[in-house]
Deep mutational scan, measured.
Amino acid sequence: MQRVNMIMAESPGLITICLLGYLLSAECTVFLDHENANKILNRPKRYNSGKLEEFVQGNLERECMEEKCSFEEAREVFENTERTTEFWKQYVDGDQCESNPCLNGGSCKDDINSYECWCPFGFEGKNCELDVTCNIKNGRCEQFCKNSADNKVVCSCTEGYRLAENQKSCEPAVPFPCGRVSVSQTSKLTRAETVFPDVDYVNSTEAETILDNITQSTQSFNDFTRVVGGEDAKPGQFPWQVVLNGKVDAFCGGSIVNEKWIVTAAHCVETGVKITVVAGEHNIEETEHTEQKRNVIRIIPHHNYNAAINKYNHDIALLELDEPLVLNSYVTPICIADKEYTNIFLKFGSGYVSGWGRVFHKGRSALVLQYLRVPLVDRATCLRSTKFTIYNNMFCAGFHEGGRDSCQGDSGGPHVTEVEGTSFLTGIISWGEECAMKGKYGIYTKVSRYVNWIKEKTKLT
């Protein structure tokens, strides 16, 4: 034993070699072989497995989906700052455009905790909710729209109204504003409101030439003092309507412009014939205590009207009353817009006519005020429907199939267009061939041609 100890002390290297040989010859039971080890760690190889990531292109799944990435790591994937920024906006807080917040056709661009709407022409605001041009839906104005110097929408209202708090709607500024039905039992019968379409306001006024200088022999019209197929109006439903009495009662109609003036057809009036105007009328054979009678003290036909040349060209006249009318729910003026808007309103496509005229061709006159909704007829169809001249200051309205029309005794009465609950004068009943005849239409004086003249002559002093 002493000898062994001496050998170990003198030859430590020998001992180490012996131990190493023993270990190498022993069977290893701690580690699995290569094949079995792979069965336990069965993990798919990654895209760049075996390579240094710093030297390969980034992978979106590896960089940002398996674990949260930084902007720089995302930049490695896209290799483009702009594309990385677009991805980053949604990656950080989701897609803010998912709810489609942009209105009126706006395009949404996502941002971090926010979004941006790219608005089409005519709109602005956070969600493109603000109209900035009158060309689109009248700028959301209830009545009139004008573009300011910086191309912003400025709404306005006709006389007797003021802008509401929203700067879009119009509200009454006087007790009985024009064009409004205020009798409670008839307010439910107000005709369907007309909503502004998209309009090209630059070209809204037709490029028409008034044929002022045409000389033409007097034409022989049949029954051209021209509501057939209409309905009984309720008291106060058309408070701007008046009836004219002269040699015979209810020979023509008219509309209240203001307390002192009536507008009617020029062919209705004769110099030297006494005319009485009755406002607030409903049943011409009954006294309903809503009527107001006034005498006409002055007749002003349009300066281009000449019955000797043509009885229905420039067929418009103004009547001055001896005493002002007292405005109330049964006696209310009709609204008159400017030339541009009167023309736009007419193009809405349908209007209402009213009167006490004959209820059928050569038949009896109506006792109760009649009204009828009539569609506008395109000019080409209008011209083809008659052998008589249709001037540019006239328009056609009615039904091709016949059966409904204005008729004798309705002449001078109103053709009105309702705009968001307020009625505007767009025409004056003038003439036609018979009444409600198939293929024939009622012919009306186009008020847009005469609004400046009306307003100039009827100013209240």
Rank of each mutant, 00 (worst) to 15 (best):
E340C: 03
V154M: 08
T225S: 06
M394H: 15
K51P: 14
Y441P: 14
T215P: 08
I299P: 02
V451Y: 10
V374N: 02
F345V: 07
C268Y: 01
G349Y: 03
K137Q: 14
K446N: 14
G160L: 01
G160W: 02
E129C: 06
S406K: 05
S423P: 02
F78W: 10
K455A: 12
K146T: 11
K45A: 12
L321N: 00
E73I: 10
F388Q: 15
L103K: 06
N328S: 14
Y201N: 11
Y305L: 02
G403H: 15
S169N: 08
L460A: 08
P375K: 15
V377M: 14
L189K: 10
T381M: 14
N245C: 04
N343A: 10
D223K: 04
K39R: 07
N222Y: 11
Y305E: 01
G50Q: 13
R294G: 01
K387L: 11
E27Y: 03
R140K: 11
C382W: 02
G106T: 05
A173P: 00
A307G: 12
T209C: 14
E72M: 15
K168I: 14
T426C: 00
G351S: 11
E323T: 12
L367V: 10
V174K: 09
L369N: 08
R358D: 12
C382E: 02
E281Y: 08
P414A: 14
S204K: 10
Y305A: 02
F348K: 03
V278I: 04
N151R: 06
C335G: 02
V181E: 06
F221A: 09
N127W: 09
F78D: 12
R75K: 13
P177C: 02
R62M: 11
K45N: 09
P235W: 06
K440E: 14
E116F: 13
S184E: 09
A397I: 02
P44V: 08
A233I: 09
I334C: 01
G412K: 04
I40R: 08
G246Y: 07
D405L: 15
H314Q: 02
R75S: 03
G427W: 00
D198N: 08
G357C: 07
L23I: 12
V30C: 10
E79W: 15
N100V: 10
E456I: 08
G402R: 08
A266T: 01
P44R: 03
I112N: 13
T290D: 04
S49I: 12
T190I: 10
T422Q: 03
W356V: 12
H302Y: 12
A233F: 11
C178N: 00
G58L: 09
Q219L: 03
V154A: 10
E323V: 14
N213W: 06
E231R: 12
G125C: 02
C396W: 01
A173N: 06
Q241T: 07
I390L: 14
R140D: 09
K274P: 08
A149W: 04
Y330V: 09
W240C: 00
D322Q: 08
C117T: 03
T158P: 03
L425M: 06
R449W: 15
S156E: 09
A308N: 11
S107V: 11
E259T: 06
I15A: 04
A149L: 06
F196V: 07
E320M: 05
L325R: 00
K146P: 01
L24K: 02
C435L: 02
D93Y: 12
A397S: 07
R449A: 15
K152T: 12
N113H: 12
G21C: 03
P333S: 05
R62C: 07
T386P: 08
E340T: 15
C407V: 08
N306C: 05
D322R: 03
F55S: 13
N135Y: 04
I284H: 06
R449K: 08
N313V: 06
N328T: 14
V174N: 04
Q216V: 13
S365Q: 13
T158G: 04
G58M: 04
V447D: 00
E35Y: 07
S385T: 14
G105W: 07
P12D: 04
T133W: 06
V359E: 04
K311P: 12
Y91E: 14
V195C: 15
